[in-house]
Design a protein around this nucleic acid. Structure first.
Lengths: 128, 128
DNA sequence: CTTTACATTCCAGTCACTGGAGACTTTATA
DNA sequence: TATAAAGTCTCCAGTGACTGGAATGTAAAG
């Protein structure tokens, strides 16, 4: 199938699918006459896989690793679990950061009158 | 003072301070002989302000707005509060996303044996 | 006078795409 | 069959907020 069909089936944009070909993540065959990329169902399955992994916040390089594990008959689930645990840990870090950020900001908002006068504890805090 | 002094006082890197000059956020005077950037205490205060706002996850463009409010004698705290509430809302969105991501991933991890066999519910989920 | 430290500009790279130009191929319509 | 429209190709540039590095120039210390 052509690239737009593969894109539709995998829920990715044509641009993104072409990008994944460029970076050698999913390299389809080529139609010799037209030069068009020609995707198989297997290629689409890989695109799907990557799309999901990306939505799970895995980076492109992590997706590459997961994809090669996915295609490896002799993989051990241990390796996959390790990657996933590391990802959870990094998400936890971000969660912590954003939580404390949120708390500080909402504290500041509560202190701010939000009226027409210039006095503003938010700006005061930022300039300390 | 020279750029490295300003950087040290504001807790930013020299590269970053120069970058803020390039994008016309904090534009210092210049020493005519040497061409070196020459920072005042006021410039450093602005750099400080921006550094803090960036740590609060405000974008460069938002920092620009906050900075102009900061320097505006006739500002109303209402405007600052509005920006801050919008920022909180966007942080809340990210928090929601990351929370559900985390939950899904840790669910998958709990289902995965993590042993030497290839069977892996994490990869199964990603390929669905 | 030389070494060293600091400063300058400019270019490239990061990450994961996205947009657009210009050219080619295929498909649909008149 | 001619033409128009849709799809595809490659290549280049831009995003955000810096960061790294090269080549060059200036200032301070020994």
């Amino acid at each position: 199938m052509n690239i737009s069909e593969a894109a539709k089936l995998s829920g990715l944009s044509v641009k993104t699918v072409r990008y994944y070909a460029d970076i050698k993540m999913v390299e389809p065959a080529r139609n010799i006459q037209s030069g068009y990329r020609s995707y198989t169902n297997d290629d689409v399955a890989k695109l799907n896989f990557i799309g999901k992994a990306r939505r799970f916040n895995f980076s492109i390089e992590e997706c590459r690793e997961l994809l090669s594990l996915y295609q490896d008959e002799n993989r051990s689930s241990k390796e996959v679990k390790k990657l996933t645990l590391a990802k959870i840990a990094s998400i936890d870090e971000k969660l912590k950061e954003f939580h404390s950020l949120r708390d500080e900001l909402s504290h500041l908002v509560n202190c701010c009158n939000g009226d027409d006068r210039p006095s503003c504890p938010i700006l005061d805090e930022l300039s300390k």
